[in-house]
Design a protein around this nucleic acid. Structure first.
Lengths: 227, 227
DNA sequence: GTATAATTTAACCGAATAGTCCATTTACAC
DNA sequence: GTGTAAATGGACTATTCGGTTAAATTATAC
């Protein structure tokens, strides 16, 4: 019986019982959730090919074996992370109630929300960047994600239509175009934060800088749709 | 035992002197240039960690050894590619003569150029994306790149100031803010082309789509600065 | 031409790493 | 308790891949 291994060096023994021939508690849901979170951080930080499965396992108190046990392979885990990330922003978006506000206010709210969600979730932005590097191959593989973004356009269209009816917006714009403008102006500050900082010495992660930029983006969109 | 004798006393089948290329022409500059171009394609396509040095060597008619001979290591090559990419856009930017046009026209020209340069050079956009994933670590390492983007702001400032003097632009805007708006709206269509296509079935690489989007971006920026 | 340096090739190496095997433990039904 | 299926850990493996070694070939200086 190899029951007395023990050595005081190395072995950063995280939580739970460390050495063999000891006990642990089963917690499939918990482990799965832990893996997903650690993977989200790792993939967002280093991208799909830069991420290390060992590193994900090390971050939490589990063995690498569990990752393959629950997610089959690295790509399966990556897709699960993507799905979860889209489901999150989607869930919050659903909770917005823009239909009750007048068009201009509704648009202001939508732009403000979009800007701030990106600003506060750089890991989401980085995941989307990585996915675009891969030509959205994994988005295509996931039926789940496919349906998610559709209603974003509907949201914009609804506001725009009401604005037209109430004669506060000008005609001739396409909802997709408006949506792209909103998202581009929300996404870029975050996705290109590092090169902006390097090139201009301006840190878009700074609170004040964000506040000012957000106001500018809102104004830009409002001026775009105004008569 | 795969029968590969070590010493050379009587070993008959040693190094195959038969099929090797027996002659070649030296062309250091040409090889260096070929490597840079192949590397630009590979790095733009797969990012730093996704790119394969073997693949770069295979693309052109050289051996992997040459890459390390001329660029020291993978990162050295990556930095050289980045420097070249920035030098290219920089060179073209310099050739624009915006100071002679009236402010509105100059701004239109600048926005149009920026939009179209990004649209026509997706590999540049993808390199910048990749660099941002790496927190612009390599931009920092390159003294060359450091100085490049500074005058982009100067260009915008010059136009904006002239517009203020001639009373055609409104006051209170910052040149950096205007620049960020222009670049974000030019960058996003290209950087996020795949996810836009996947989410909305709209292909930003399409010629007509680009033309329309470009007009929209120009209008957005003009409306931003107009009184 | 001959020595020397620069350029190029093919083969090789060692570390990193995605993925697997096998033994062991837990949870749970009976 | 006992059987068994799910869950877990740890060691192991096969392969990929950045980087190196050693030698060959070309260019060049004298």
């Amino acid at each position: 019986m190899p029951g007395i291994p023990k050595n005081g060096d190395a072995a950063p023994t995280r939580r739970k019982i460390s050495s063999r021939a000891t006990s642990w508690t089963q917690d499939p849901e918990g482990v799965r959730k832990d893996i997903l979170e650690a993977a989200r951080i790792e993939f967002a930080e280093k991208g799909l090919s830069g991420a290390r499965v060992d590193e994900i396992a090390t971050r939490i108190a589990t063995s690498k074996r569990m990752i393959f046990y629950y997610f089959k392979d690295k790509e399966g885990l990556y897709i699960a992370v993507l799905e979860e990330a889209y489901a999150r922003i989607r869930g919050i978006e659903r909770s917005l109630d823009l239909a009750t506000s007048p068009p201009r206010e509704a648009l202001e709210l939508l732009v403000g929300f979009t800007f701030n969600y990106h600003a506060r979730h750089p890991e989401f932005v980085r995941l989307v960047m990585g996915e675009n590097i891969h030509h959205a191959r994994h988005m295509k593989l996931s039926a789940k994600i496919g349906e998610l973004n559709l209603s974003a356009i509907d949201t914009v269209r609804d506001i725009y239509m009401r604005g037209l009816e109430q004669d506060v917006f000008r005609e001739g714009l396409s909802p997709l175009d408006i949506h792209l403008t909103i998202t581009a102006l929300s996404f870029y500050n975050v996705s290109n934060r590092a090169s902006i900082l390097q090139a201009f010495g301006h840190d878009m992660a700074d609170k004040d800088a964000q506040t000012r930029r957000c106001a500018s983006v809102v104004e830009t969109v409002l001026r775009l749709v105004s008569k």
